[in-house]
């Protein structure tokens, strides 16, 4: 009997210590122990300033710079297209949806928006003022290319300093001279990004 109780108590203790450890050390976005009632964060608001945002890569569907509350998009109506369709842009002065939206999957042009592009919110979304919970380390493609180019420039500069040029028959010409007509060609030999 006694043994049983001790065993049971020990079991409980183990349980509580386990919970405590989990509560203390596990990284979560919750911000409070799972057992506590949290006070909810303020709801972020929709950005509604009609200012276009940069695209993070060329093919990114642009984000919507205004609120779209209660905009009906279904079999009956497409409220977005009531401003953004080809027919409406003269009056609304809204940007027209891309011509790709008027193409079928084989690239044939259609008279109206293609069914596969009809549901705008599958790709386009408004943005809120919410702060990201985790820092986003996404790097813009132009930024990474610039970095690569810098790196390459530094490398070729040191190669020139050490006179250990291994490729080509140009060493008589100074490398990377601005305005040097063959600039691009030399680059190509060293780095595939040189052509950019």
């Amino acid at each position: 009997m006694m043994k049983k109780i001790i065993f049971y108590l020990a079991f409980c203790l183990m349980g509580t210590s386990f919970v405590a450890v989990a509560g203390d050390t596990t990284a979560t976005l919750r911000g409070n122990a799972i057992t506590d009632d949290a006070y909810p964060e303020r709801m972020p608001t929709i950005e509604n300033d009609d200012v276009k945002r940069a695209r993070n890569y060329p093919m990114q569907p642009p984000t919507i710079p205004h609120k779209i509350d209660n905009y009906q998009v279904n079999i009956n109506v497409n409220k977005c297209l009531s401003c953004h369709s080809r027919r409406q842009t003269e009056e609304s002065q809204a940007p027209m949806v891309s011509v790709t939206h008027y193409m079928d999957r084989d690239g044939n042009f259609l008279a109206d928006v293609s069914p596969r592009r009809y549901f705008c919110n599958q790709c386009h979304v408004p943005q809120t003022t919410a702060k990201p919970l985790i820092k986003n380390t996404f790097e813009d493609v132009s930024a990474s290319l610039r970095k690569d180019k810098e790196k390459h420039r530094r490398e070729t500069a040191s190669v020139r300093k050490n006179k250990t040029i291994l490729v080509g028959d140009e060493p008589t010409q100074p490398l990377l001279q601005p305005g040097f007509p063959d600039h691009g060609r030399i680059h190509r030999r060293y780095h595939f990004l040189g052509w950019i």
């Binding site: 009906q72 079999i75 009956n76 109506v77 497409n78 409220k79 297209l81 009531s82």
Partner: peptide
């Protein structure tokens, strides 16, 4: 239009 209720099929209705 449609400020208070869902809209019917607006094909042909001016403004859509």
């Amino acid at each position: 239009k449609g400020i208070a209720h869902e809209l019917p099929d607006t094909a042909g209705v001016e403004g859509f």
